[in-house]
Nucleic acid binder design. Structure first.
Lengths: 162, 162
DNA sequence: TATTGTTATACTCTATAACTATA
DNA sequence: TATAGTTATAGAGTATAACAATA
């Protein structure tokens, strides 16, 4: 079992096995995409092991660092997730002192979400870790990076339309 | 809500929103990888909507179609998952008549898993659907397919070693 | 009536640990 | 003791539906 200093949670991911791509999937883009993504995500989680930060926080903190004062609904749209999926994460972030919730005057139903100073520090820390991770990916991918991003963007665009 | 003829389960995935890659992630391979994979997987799930088949079954049925008589433990290694994660799926596949479990003579603890004829038919059906999906991916990716597969394979190899 | 945030609930996929039967 | 399969439990991540407050 992997140790974790900060709390009992441990990044879950693909076990390191030998295998990789069963021959029958050797030509299948979707399968490679899935396995590569899992491997990459698990590696990112490993880099976070000695922190009390969660991989899922990174997206939210980063979006907030660039779009100050979004409401939860707006944030959920940017994330591409349902509103309801953010509630518990926002609560945790608030408890950890990483975000503030500021009541909106003109609409009592909603509020603006902002990074606290601590939140900004944590975002920077996560960004540094993510950059370390992406430096590794860049190294692996090498000169093909631009081409890879272009292809992945095409895939995203094609499927997000229908 | 999406309708589903066969049962109450419905593929869950990314909602179709406008957004896609927040600018702050525009240069981040890992983020693209994740979003592209989710989009692709959700689309595959959509193709299965009118069947009673599950996306997760495809890998198992396909591996079995090429490696007849694996034990659950062997199968889990090929899948790269823990043994325990296969139990319930194998039970469902057995109930649906897609696999047989044949007792091993020399080791009473274990058994060999084999596709039934129905299982072979279903595997073929899933394969056809997967091919339809991958044809779409091929179309999107175009000439870059070989390069994409090569890069993804490099990523997988790099992270699976350590 | 419609929207916002929240809650309740559920489902997928995965993991670890403990149990059982056997080796 | 060690291993194979199973069960129990847990957690992340996501979704839908319904609710209360407000618009």
């Amino acid at each position: 079992m992997k140790a974790n200093i900060a709390n009992k949670e441990v990044p879950q991911g693909r076990e390191e096995t030998d295998l990789l791509i069963p021959e029958d999937f050797s030509n299948v883009i979707g399968y490679h995409l899935r396995v590569a993504q899992e491997a990459s995500f698990a590696a990112f989680g490993t880099l976070l092991q000695n922190t009390d930060l969660k991989p899922g926080w990174y997206t939210i903190l980063t979006i907030l660092s660039q779009h100050d004062g979004l409401t939860p609904s707006e944030l959920s749209k940017v994330c591409g997730r349902d509103r309801s999926t953010l509630t518990s994460t926002l609560k945790k972030l608030s408890i950890r002192g990483l975000i503030d919730r500021e009541q909106i005057q003109c609409d009592q139903r909603s509020y603006k979400v902002r990074l606290t100073e601590e939140g900004q520090r944590m975002q920077a820390k996560l960004r540094a870790i993510a950059q370390e991770h992406d430096r590794r990916l860049d190294e692996i991918v090498g000169d093909d990076k631009d081409a890879l991003l272009a292809v992945l963007t095409k895939i995203i665009a094609a499927f997000s339309k229908g």
